[in-house]
């Protein structure tokens, strides 16, 4: 556990909301990252982030202090996000994370970044989530498996498959050469 974190968790267990607020401050971006990897929609991910912290606080007595806190917190977040995904009635929205291109970048770099952005966020959730956790959170495979509730073998397969899909989509757009065996 990160220095001071154990104390914050223990104080939170005793009902100290200020301590939990500090946990929220430290982890909110990372938790948001897990939520948006699953939900893709920013507004839904914000809601899921808030709900994840509330639920984690309510279930803090389940947390085993010998385990890595962040993994436990991300697992709670993934469950909240997956529940939200299941309840979502409307079709999965188009990648809203797409941003206005930076005018300072070269045209080629803009196009490449935009193509990569759309390809990543356009992946189905089952491939997108492990990919984002790997490339942005830099989680190892065991942690990704734990957070998403999957076997390590399944995570590996989905990472490879997600990468193959990305490669195919970028090749279709002419961003990278076609794959040659």
């Amino acid at each position: 556990m990160i220095s001071g974190e154990l104390e914050l968790v223990q104080r939170s267990l005793e009902g100290d909301l200020e301590a939990w607020g500090e946990i929220v401050r430290r982890y909110k971006e990372a938790v948001f990252g897990v939520a948006v990897a699953i939900l893709r929609n920013r507004a839904d991910a914000e809601d899921a982030t808030q709900e994840a912290f509330i639920r984690a606080y309510e279930r803090l007595y389940h947390y085993d202090l010998s385990r890595k806190f962040s993994t436990w917190l991300f697992t709670v977040t993934a469950n909240v996000a997956k529940n939200m995904l299941r309840k979502r009635r409307r079709p999965e929205p188009r990648p809203p994370i797409a941003q206005v291109a930076d005018p300072a970048e070269t045209v080629w770099r803009e196009e490449l970044h935009q193509a990569v952005r759309e390809a990543v966020w356009g992946l189905p959730e089952s491939y997108r989530a492990p990919l984002v956790l790997r490339y942005w959170h830099e989680m190892d495979l065991a942690e990704i498996a734990q957070v998403l509730g999957l076997r390590v073998g399944t995570v590996k397969t989905r990472l490879h498959r997600g990468r193959a899909l990305l490669r195919a989509r970028l090749a279709e757009r002419g961003v990278i050469p076609d794959v040659v065996q």
Binding site: R25, K28, E29, F32, R42, F53, Q99, V132
Partner: peptide, 20 residues
């Protein structure tokens, strides 16, 4: 991903207070 996450997380300001 780093750019997208940085921009998207700007809306998380004040989340601590909302959670509490």
């Amino acid at each position: 991903l780093a750019k997208d996450m940085e921009r998207a997380s700007e809306s998380l300001a004040g989340l601590e207070d909302r959670v509490i």
